[in-house]
Design a protein around this nucleic acid. Structure first.
Lengths: 129, 129
DNA sequence: TAAAGTGTATTAAGCATATAATACACAACA
DNA sequence: TGTTGTGTATTATATGCTTAATACACTTTA
């Protein structure tokens, strides 16, 4: 469970994003059981209600499903899973392009920056006001 | 005044970011007068207190300064101005890299995506849940 | 001089988020 | 059979952000 919570964004949003990443990379497999609400809350030191809110929303989005009162599981719908990855990529690309265009960074400059920083250890990186 | 406010982030944060972009691109020049709190609030249809909060924070960060009760002005400190642009770029790059690495997108794939989407009309783009 | 426009400050209310503390029905299991 | 662990739900409280409504001191200007 390698998730860092920031204090900017709503916690339940960050939890959902974390699961989307795990699903997109295949770390969480179709049909796989996930932590219960209480278990997740314990691990992340968050409130069980917040965990419940995240799971409820993921259920509404079809990312997970629940049968009876068994622990929830990752969807088996491959279409949804594929869509999750594409959605995350598209969002990242669009956000990045909007950011650099707003300050007149050229395509060449942007590509150079990505190449230069891609292999850096994140701990060496600065930024994020 | 070309600023779109979303409902995700705090308004005063978005206002600060907007001014940083204007400063970074040189659209707002050193020493230039900016809209008064009330004027800005009117233009953006936000509360004067929110405008005041944004300006106060920008003043604390050295981005603007105020003499007497004249309209505030953009800082004349070129070091700060240069730093603003670098900060925005670094933040965009680091955020993007973190996002794509979290879903195992390769450097090559990432560069391709940037190249493919850079010249697209933003209105054609999708995403942003 | 009076009006209008500055920056600055205070108080109150509403909303979303997060936490806290419970509660209940159900199923597995020791 | 009772305990434990599921999902699910409700009520209350606190905090941050936003809006609203004022207020005051100071300049400029008509």
């Amino acid at each position: 469970m390698n998730i860092k919570l920031n204090s900017r964004d709503p916690v339940y949003i960050q939890v959902i994003r974390y699961f989307k990443e795990q699903i997109a990379t295949g770390i969480l497999e179709p049909g796989q059981e996930i932590a219960s609400r209480r278990e997740l809350a314990n691990k992340l030191k968050i409130n069980p209600n917040t965990a419940q809110r995240a799971y409820k929303e993921m259920e509404e989005q079809g990312l997970i499903f629940t049968e009876g009162n068994l622990p929830s599981r990752i969807t088996k719908d491959e279409v949804i899973i594929k869509h999750v990855r594409e959605e995350l990529i598209l969002e990242a690309v669009n956000t990045f392009i909007a950011s650099i265009q707003s300050i007149n960074v050229s395509l060449e400059e942007a590509v150079e920056l990505i190449k230069k920083n891609y292999h850096k250890n994140p701990n060496e990186q600065e930024g994020n006001q």
